[in-house]
Design a protein around this nucleic acid. Structure first.
Lengths: 164, 164
DNA sequence: GCGTATTGTTGGGTATACGAACGTTTTTAG
DNA sequence: CTAAAAACGTTCGTATACCCAACAATACGC
């Protein structure tokens, strides 16, 4: 879901006499009071920064999250992974496909259930995760640059309450 | 009781194979410390709730935002709108197409620029916005049901700081 | 007036997500 | 111990939301 580029909205200015055919002050109505609106804008900013900062590794936030969980919990099944990150099994298929195609993840037969796979990272996949860790930390610092440590912690708590 | 653990003990046999279904302990690693992770999860929750709650009107958050801005700023052009919400002109075309097909938005010739349209809501479009306002308010209350009024205000402030 | 910018549009591409249906396997109920 | 139900991974169809490059028509700067 590549959203928008994080450009700010700069609405130039002075001409208010015309009905807004051209550029004028635009009334945002209730949008600024909506959590959903700010959530979307923040997400756009964060997603774009992530993709840009990880461009040398070519990985998206979603792929990173999945790869990280496999790294830490080798042997997970796709379904367990999907439940964990809160998406559908059918959506997870494409995520794993992408990681497998790049040789980062292996689908091994589960020793206990012939319906499912035991997912593990390849050597290359593990290396990539370790290389990404400091980059992700830097990315987080960047997007939280306007937040104090307290605010940052508070934001996470509040977001978690939204996501249930 | 751990999941299959590739590093230490790694025994495919011992665990009760219920690891997945019953959600054994999954190590989330650094994910819970990442703003981006919580943002994404909250966004999914909010988007799904919005779509579900507005199902009788069949409108998405993006369409609502655009229609709201036209409602409040009649005569806007597609390009001005796109700049305001931060998407590409080419992306806006489909959004307006969808709203126009449903008879909610009209593309009127701009009185001052023959290249562009002056966008306005139809009677039906305006009615829909007014009908949606309380529904959107209810949606916001729903997604913020675990938040106090203070927390809600705080969340918006923090999200705005991220989006800068 | 001529070059350049802008408008709306199309077409192609990427990323992400959902639900329904399917074959295979496992679990559960009776 | 079998019959029904559930779960696994998958495909397909659908939707949202975004990008870029190119185009004809129009507007603007100088």
């Amino acid at each position: 879901m590549k959203l928008v580029d994080g450009k700010t909205i700069s609405t130039p200015l002075e001409n208010s006499s015309q009905a807004n055919g051209s550029e004028a002050e635009i009334d945002f109505d209730i949008l600024p009071t909506l959590i959903g609106y700010h959530l979307r804008r923040a997400q756009i900013t964060v997603f774009n920064d992530f993709v840009k900062m990880m461009s040398e590794v070519q990985i998206t936030p979603g792929q990173f999250g999945v790869a990280l969980l496999i790294n830490t919990n080798p042997g997970l099944t796709q379904s367990a992974l999907a439940r964990t990150v809160g998406i559908e099994r059918s959506t997870m298929v494409a995520v794993i496909d992408a990681l497998e195609t790049r040789g980062l993840v292996e689908r091994r037969p589960s020793p206990v259930d012939r319906r499912s796979y035991a997912l593990v990272l390849s050597e290359q996949g593990n290396d990539m995760i370790e290389r990404l860790r400091p980059m992700v930390a830097a990315h987080e610092d960047r997007i939280a640059k306007n937040l104090s440590a307290d605010e940052r912690a508070q934001l996470i708590i509040l977001l978690a309450k939204i996501a249930d």
